[in-house]
């Protein structure tokens, strides 16, 4: 098939950026979206132009590296699908495709479709873990976990940190990302001792990083390639409420 691509090109954070238009010919429907971009890049290189920069790695929907707005939708038209898992059979001959980076203040553009998602690491850093010293763990079977709790924790833990939730949210909130980790650990007995300090600390970092507030649009859930439910945000809010009411201020609790 033959496609017309309008791709966001921006050399760095200072450059205002612009759309450029490319014709993509001889695209077969069994190609993945990123195979298609590779091919466009090969041709750009042969023509002496600079290829389109985009983050990618595993190309099987698990590393979370790739992410771009495709016709205004994070990761494109198919639900539960990352850009690298999207195949060209989702498009038709003659289609125009608009490709842009994630748009969020907290995710500055590095180049073209590549943005910085460093704030995600800092949110995890501020409490998204269980404090357990290497080698100090008891035998695994001394900690039974109710199957349902383990399954629900897993449903949250599948987050790949791609940032689609932020890109989809009208407030550019990262609450689904934050809630997924908070809920994963809160649902497991291992996460219980730090449960309330964790949620306070992670939400505080979330806000400091410049993400917006959650106002329950639910766009994040639709955009999430792993189908993480906004119910986890509700769970985060319950924990946050309880933690805020408790007598210990967050900073004291952390020490």
């Amino acid at each position: 098939m033959r496609l017309t691509l309008h791709v966001w090109r921006q050399s760095d954070a200072r450059d205002p950026g612009r759309f450029e238009t490319y014709e993509a010919n001889d695209i077969s429907e069994s190609m993945s979206f990123l195979d298609m971009l590779d091919l466009v890049n090969e041709r750009l290189t042969e023509d002496g132009k600079e290829p389109i920069a985009f983050d990618h790695d595993c190309r099987e929907g698990i590393c979370g590296s790739c992410g771009m707005m495709i016709n205004g939708v994070p990761h494109g038209p198919k639900t539960m699908t990352t850009a690298c898992q999207l195949h060209m059979r989702s498009f038709s001959d003659g289609d125009e495709i608009w490709i842009e980076p994630w748009r969020a203040q907290a995710f500055p553009v590095i180049r073209d479709l590549v943005v910085s998602r460093d704030p995600f690491d800092r949110i995890i850093e501020s409490g998204g873990y269980v404090s357990v010293r290497t080698g100090s763990a008891p035998d695994a079977h001394t900690i039974p976990v109710e199957k349902q709790a383990a399954d629900e924790a897993m449903d949250a833990a599948v987050c790949i940190g791609c940032g689609a939730c932020v890109a989809a949210c009208p407030n550019a909130s990262a609450m689904l990302f934050t809630a997924a980790k908070v809920a994963h650990l809160a649902l497991m007995p291992q996460g219980a001792p730090e449960r309330y300090d964790r949620v306070l600390s992670m939400v505080e970092t979330h806000d400091e990083e410049g993400f917006g507030n959650c106002t329950n649009h639910g766009a994040c859930e639709v955009a999430c390639p792993k189908g993480i439910s906004v119910d986890y945000i509700a769970q985060l809010n319950r924990d946050l409420f309880r933690a805020t009411l408790s007598s210990r201020p967050a900073n004291e609790a952390k020490e």
Binding site: V130, G135, A137, I143, P144, V145, E146
Partner: peptide
């Protein structure tokens, strides 16, 4: 043991 203590959500049987 280490991974379980970290909260890795391994598959469980009904008995936990």
């Amino acid at each position: 043991d280490q991974a379980v203590a970290q909260g890795v959500p391994f598959a469980r049987e009904y008995g936990g």
